[in-house]
């Protein structure tokens, strides 16, 4: 009996205790880790990944998967740059255009999966390739920067407007002057919105039901197709938000940035399975998962671990979290069965 309680406790709080232990350890051994600036830096480093991860969480909830989020984000990055620098659109319309693009890509993903019965991994893999290619076509494979030379020899007239850059670069005062960057605020808002949606609304509950037993959900009258499409549209929109913030931070349409977005955000969502013993995709876990990776990398960097060890560390955390989720939960359910 006590072993079982211990196991349950480990499954529920093990990962949070590990996170807490890491913070204490780095605070003691790395000088300057426990400071508002460092906290803000960690949050900033995970904000965009986190936003994408929250979107992919919604697709995981309906037992789907969205591989196209990384390329949706980079497409949004290029599209916003193209819209402002070459088409000379305003910040507001560029943002709207990107969000619309994300929603449409999500809709197409959803339709491919629901109506054309393409398996989710394959449909979104195809979409990923398509977008990676598509975003390079308008600029013949070049990055977009203000004052760049165009193909016809003229110079691009448009600029990134101040309002747009504000999205990526503005910092709010909190305790210390100019501390919290705008992307962090958007990350936190997105996290709260997705959490409320998934955990507290009936739509979220139905999406979990669809993920657990699609047929049963359909037989109680849930519109399974619509919810699945909605999940991919949410994923597309959050990915384009991520891309917009990246563009606003960089101030240019950099063709090479955002390479790691897909893997990092999927990892965050999967690490989230282990948080609070949920053993399924959940918004709180995803946010904590993103934060966990951020804290670990920041701490190790401050203790002079070289940059090229980062992917190794992320991978190790992911494997640990997956073992945590699946091995321990399997033990628990086997023990509880009669």
């Amino acid at each position: 009996m006590t072993r079982e309680t211990l196991l349950n406790f480990a499954i529920r709080f093990g990962f949070l205790i590990l996170l807490f232990g890491l913070v204490i350890y780095f605070s003691l051994s790395a000088n300057g880790f426990a400071s508002p600036r460092s906290a803000a830096f960690i949050l900033q480093s995970v904000a965009i990944t986190g936003i994408l991860a929250l979107g992919v969480t919604c697709t995981l909830v309906v037992d789907g998967f969205d591989l196209s989020i990384g390329s949706v984000a980079t497409s949004a990055l290029m599209l916003s740059a193209y819209a402002m620098v070459i088409l000379e659109m305003s910040a507001g319309s560029a943002v709207l255009l990107c969000l619309l693009m994300g929603a449409v890509v999500g809709l197409i993903n959803g339709l491919l999966i629901v109506k054309f019965k393409v398996p989710d991994l394959l449909a979104t893999l195809g979409m990923m390739f398509l977008l990676i290619g598509l975003q390079r076509i308008p600029t013949q494979g070049n990055s977009i920067a203000t004052g760049m030379k165009l193909a016809d020899g003229s110079t691009a007239e448009g600029t990134f407007s101040a309002a747009f850059l504000w999205l990526g670069r503005h910092r709010f005062d909190l305790v210390v002057e100019r501390l919290v960057p705008m992307p962090v605020v958007i990350f936190l808002i997105t996290a709260v919105v997705i959490w409320v949606f998934l955990e507290l609304t009936r739509h979220g509950r139905l999406m979990y039901a669809i993920g657990s037993n699609e047929r049963a959900a359909a037989l109680v009258g849930a519109n399974v197709s619509r919810y699945k499409i909605a999940a991919y549209m949410i994923s597309g929109v959050t990915a384009s938000i991520g891309g917009i913030l990246l563009a606003a931070r960089l101030g240019r349409g950099d063709i090479a940035s955002g390479n790691n977005l897909l893997l990092d955000s999927v990892a965050a969502a999967l690490i989230g399975f282990a948080v609070l013993g949920a053993a399924r995709a959940n918004a709180f876990g995803t946010a904590i998962g993103a934060l966990f990776v951020g804290i670990l990398l920041q701490g190790l960097t401050m203790m002079n671990a070289p940059y090229y060890t980062q992917d190794f560390v992320k991978g190790a955390v992911l494997v640990l979290a997956l073992v945590f989720t699946f091995y321990l939960s399997a033990k628990r359910s086997a023990g509880g069965k009669t």
Binding site: Y208, A209, S212, N213, A216, A217, L219, R280
Partner: peptide
Amino acid sequence: STNAVIPDF
């Protein structure tokens, strides 16, 4: 088990 139960709930 196939048509009614939501195992996660």
